[in-house]
């Protein structure tokens, strides 16, 4: 049984290889980019909208509102990173209803890559907002004794991000695979529906948590900054 799309190698040349994870990722990227381009090349600013433009505006407005709710700041600078996280993960998870499709988020490599991106983005935004010293100072708060714990927390939450997403998506795929072999009718569909729900929730959780981490790093001076549970 295939657990990860990484194991499906489509092309290999020496150490370089292209597996299903990359292929499906490119597919999703192409889908999103071409779809966005097709819709946004004919945007109207009048009161009458096409339904696709309306969909995009709803998505973008929803993302901006969510980011604003979490960060209490202008969402413009966070929108590309956090929004892309959500859209990519959500699209990747929703496409599981397509036969023979394997979600890239079911690969620990992909989730690790995304978590690493968050790991890098958090200090990046923090430094941009408060300067290097201002950002580094929050590692020794409330006391320098907390420095190792803060560092451990930084990496552990990144690991948690990666494993949470991977676990949820991979388990959904595996459960459906097992059910298909046991009871091929009806039950796999129910589980797949559940998988769609889980996929959307995971996309939301991943994006919101990334935003929370970035916001907390960017607003260390504000002790009443947004605090969210990191559990799933």
């Amino acid at each position: 049984m295939t657990i990860s799309p990484d194991q499906i190698v489509l092309w290999q040349w020496g150490a370089l290889h292209i597996n299903a994870t990359l292929a499906f990722t490119w597919l999703i990227m192409a889908l999103l980019t071409v779809g966005s381009w097709l819709i946004t090349r004919r945007l109207t600013t009048g009161p009458e909208l096409s339904r696709w433009q309306n969909l995009l505006e709803v998505v973008v407005t929803g993302l901006r509102d969510q980011i604003h709710d979490v960060s209490r700041r202008d969402p413009a600078q966070y929108l590309p990173f956090v929004g892309t996280l959500f859209i990519f993960i959500a699209t990747s998870n929703l496409l599981t209803i397509v036969p023979y499709y394997l979600p890239p988020t079911g690969s620990l490599s992909t989730t690790t890559a995304l978590a690493l991106c968050v790991l890098i983005a958090v200090p990046l935004y923090g430094v941009l907002q408060q300067g290097p010293l201002g950002y580094l100072r929050h590692y020794v708060k409330p006391t320098p004794l907390m420095l190792p714990f803060n560092l451990i927390g930084e990496f552990s939450r990144t690991l948690a991000l990666a494993v949470r997403l991977y676990g949820n998506i991979m388990s959904g795929t595996v459960v459906v695979g097992i059910l298909v072999s046991l009871t091929p009718f009806l039950f796999p569909i129910v589980m797949q529906l559940l998988g769609l729900l889980t996929g959307m929730i995971q996309a939301y959780i991943f994006a919101v948590l990334a935003m929370v981490y970035i916001a907390s790093a960017s607003s260390a001076s504000r002790s009443s900054g947004p605090q969210r549970s990191t559990g799933s």
């Binding site: 290889h17 994870t21 990227m29 999103l32 505006e57 590309p80 690790t112």
Partner: peptide
């Protein structure tokens, strides 16, 4: 974890961020 895939996915994600910013967020 296939680290080559991880690196490729990081690059892919950054490209996707740019593309969506270029074709989705900014126009909308």
């Amino acid at each position: 974890i296939d680290w080559l895939t991880v690196a490729a996915q990081i690059v892919n994600f950054l490209i996707l961020v740019y593309l969506l910013k270029r074709f989705l967020y900014k126009p909308v």
